[in-house]
Computed example of a mutant assay.
Amino acid sequence: MAKMIKSEVFDAANFLDNEEVIAEYLNIALESGDPNELLKALDTVARAKGMTKIAKETGLNRESLYKSLKEGKRPYFDTLQKIFSSLGIKFKVVPSVS
């Protein structure tokens, strides 16, 4: 009789447990140049921190937060700024190295 192998779906949210890891994860998404990658990464980080907590800290309701981070959406800059702030992350502009 064959043994059953149980596997779990990988979820990066399970590994985002400190600000340095979160910042690096978001930087990688930003460097991709794909806005959808950033939204997916923000969604993952928000799930890791707790959507309810992030919603409360940003002043957004959970439904609006989920919608803002949905692939294909174009959230307002102030919404992104609120989310980053609640995550303890700041935007930083640095010169591009050519």
Rank of each mutant, 00 (worst) to 15 (best):
M4V: 13
M4F: 13
K6A: 04
S7Y: 15
E8I: 11
F10D: 12
F10Q: 11
A13W: 04
N14E: 12
F15G: 03
D17Y: 03
E19L: 12
E20C: 09
I22R: 13
A23T: 05
L26N: 01
I28S: 01
A29P: 01
L30N: 13
L30Q: 12
E31L: 15
E31K: 15
S32P: 02
G33F: 03
D34V: 15
E37F: 04
L39Y: 00
K40L: 11
K40Q: 07
K40W: 07
V45S: 08
A46S: 14
A48G: 11
K49M: 09
M51C: 04
M51A: 08
I54D: 02
E57I: 02
E57V: 03
T58Q: 11
L60R: 12
L60M: 14
N61E: 01
R62I: 10
R62H: 08
S64H: 11
L65C: 00
K67L: 08
S68V: 05
S68M: 03
E71W: 04
G72E: 06
G72C: 02
K73G: 06
P75E: 07
Y76F: 14
T79F: 09
L80K: 00
L80F: 06
L80H: 04
F84R: 15
S85D: 09
K90Y: 11
K90W: 11
F91I: 15
F91W: 13
K92R: 14
K92W: 06
P95R: 02
S98M: 08
